[in-house]
Structures are given as C-alpha cells and as structure tokens.
C-alpha cells in the first residue's frame, strides 16, 4: 500500500506539528499575560505567575490575565474538536458548530431568557446557553432523521436550524428595543472578566470530551470512507454518528456557555490542521484542539490590546486572524 510507504514521514510530521502547536499554546498564554492595558515584561509575568512579584502585577497576571487566557485556550480547544467531529460526521468542509445551528440554539436560549425575564441573575445565562446548544443539536439530528441520517441532510438541517435560530435571536433583540447590552454582548462573544470560575466551568468538558474524542477519532476515519464501506467494516454507523454529534454538542455547549458565540474557530481550525498533517483524524483532532486554543488565546490578546483600555468582541478577531491564514494555506498548498 502506498500509505505504508508514506507513513514514517507522516508520523514525524504529525508528531512535530502537535509538539510545536503545544509549545506555541504555552508561549501564547505567556504572551497573553504580558500584553494588555498595562504592559508587563515576560520576566515579570513569570514572577507574577509564581507569586514572586509585587501585589499589583500578581493580581493582574494571576487573577485577570492568566485565567482568562486559560478560558480562551479551553474554549478554543472545545470548538476546534467540535469542528473536526462535525466535519467528519457531515463529510462536509463547512461542518462547524456555528454553521450547523448548535451555537445559534445556545444564542436563542440565552437571548430568550434575557428577553422573557430581564431580571434573572446573569449567572443563569450560561446554563440556558448550554441547554440551548444541546437542544438545538438534538433538533438538527431529529430533523435530519429519515430512517437514518444522511450526512448531506444533517448539514442542510443544521444550516436551516442555524438560520431559524439566528433570525429568532435577532427578532428577540429587535423587539426588546432599547437596552440589550447583555444580549448583544452574548451574541458577539467575548472573554471580558472571564476568570478562574470559568476555567473550572469548562476544563472538565475539555478534558473528558477531548479524551473521548481522541478514543473515537479512528471511527471518523472509517466514516470518511462512506456509510456503506463503514457498515461493511462492521461499524454501527448511526450509533457512532449520534455519539459523535452529541459529543460535539456538549463541547460546543460548554464553550458558548462561557464566552458566548465565537464564530469561525470550529470551521477554520480543522482545515488548517488537515493542511498541515493530512487527513488522519487521530492526528487532526489533537492538533485542532491545540490550534483552536492558540487561535483564541492570540485573538483575545489582540482584542484586549487594539482599543485598550477598551476591548472588542473576540469573534471579530478570530475571523480577521483566521480567514487569511486559511486562505494562504489553501492557495499555497496543493
């Protein structure tokens, strides 16, 4: 098989890519701790992290920037993994929690809650978003079901649900009229004042979800051969697809519950990963998790710096940073 000839080179390449990406993630977190409204040199960042600095630096590095960077990394990883899973299930390069309506479900749940009961504690919004993402994924799945799921039907049902829920969110905001700061902030997505409590809110999902995704990554490879071949190889196609979709929904739900709707990460990151290491999902998956983390940590750093002391929604930056990277890779690699 030609594959076996290419294997050693591929493995070196894959390992190198994953290791480099992991190092870059760590460096990006240190970078994120150094930049902001107040400049802190990298040496002082390390001192701040190790509690050897003055109290102000310590507070800025340890209570504001470091946990925020970790939240960005965890959420980016979640979205990257969810993107790989959804692109695998739908066998469609546009598979993404945002495009397939999972995020839109979270959005409509959060905005609907703020609209119906504006006086609810803002702490309930993440729970609503999480539930919305799961419900929306279940709806997409149910709509795509006709004695089985076809990948194309799943993708189209997702796009339809995304359009419907996005319209509903807009309608809810438009009719609630004047003051919709909280709702708009959620839809734009952002990491303002995300701290340790949010780190603790996401990491179990990233860890457990990421491990499960790694274990089942090989089944994505099999699914890629087509349903008939997969069945021929003994896979229970529907059950596998449902499990992968549920996993993607949980990862997305945990992510959007914490940062709101951040588009583009789940879409662009798996493509970049595949262009770097090929199509073996067992490599694409961890690499996408790392690249997702890297993209969101760097994007959030930019979001905090460009209009400091203010900031702009991170979703805008992920698109501005991610789109050219993807385009360059698509055009320079055959």
């Amino acid at each position: 098989m030609s594959l076996s000839v290419a294997m050693p080179d591929r493995r070196v390449r894959a390992t190198a890519a994953v290791v480099v990406a992991a190092v870059l993630v760590v460096l990006s977190v240190v970078f994120a701790c150094a930049v902001g409204a107040v400049h802190i040199p990298p040496g002082d960042v390390i001192d701040g992290l190790l509690d050897r600095s003055d109290p102000v630096t310590r507070q800025i590095v340890w209570q504001i920037r470091f946990p925020r960077a970790l939240v960005a990394a965890l959420v980016g990883a979640n979205l990257g993994i969810a993107g790989v899973l959804l692109q695998g299930i739908t066998r469609n390069p546009l598979g993404d929690p945002h495009i397939l309506g999972f995020s839109a479900g979270a959005g409509v749940a959060a905005v609907g809650l703020l609209r119906v009961a504006p006086e609810v504690p803002l702490a309930l919004v993440p729970a609503a978003a999480f539930g919305g993402a799961l419900a929306s994924a279940a709806l997409v799945y149910a709509l795509a079901w006709r004695g089985g799921i076809s990948p194309v039907r799943f993708a189209l049902a997702g796009v339809a649900v995304a359009a419907l829920f996005t319209a509903l969110s807009t309608a809810l905001i438009a009719t609630s009229k004047l003051f919709t700061q909280a709702a708009l902030a959620f839809l734009a997505g952002g990491l303002y004042q995300r701290g340790w409590e949010h780190v603790h809110q996401v990491w179990p999902y990233t860890l457990v979800g990421g491990l499960i995704a790694l274990i089942v990554a090989d089944s994505l490879n099999v699914l890629a051969l087509g349903d008939d071949v997969a069945r021929g190889l003994g896979m229970r196609v529907e059950r596998t697809r449902a499990l992968l979709a549920a996993l993607a929904a949980v990862l997305t739900g945990a992510a959007v519950a914490v940062v709101g709707l951040v588009a583009f990460v789940g879409l662009v990151v798996p493509h970049i990963a595949r262009l770097l290491v090929g199509s073996d999902q067992r490599v694409v998956l961890p690499l996408s998790a790392l690249l997702g983390a890297l993209l969101l940590v760097l994007s959030d750093s930019i979001a905090r710096v460009v209009v400091a002391p203010g900031e702009i929604p991170v979703g805008i930056i992920t698109a501005i940073v991610g789109a050219p990277v993807l385009l360059i890779l698509i055009r320079t690699r055959t």
Binding site: A37, V38, V56, I60, I64, Q193, A308, P309, G310, E311
Partner: peptide, 8 residues
C-alpha cells in the same frame, strides 16, 4: 466594561 488592569 471597565478595565480592571488599568485601575489596579
């Protein structure tokens, strides 16, 4: 969105 870093 007050910037707590700047305040600190």
């Amino acid at each position: 969105q007050p910037n707590f870093e700047a305040i600190l």
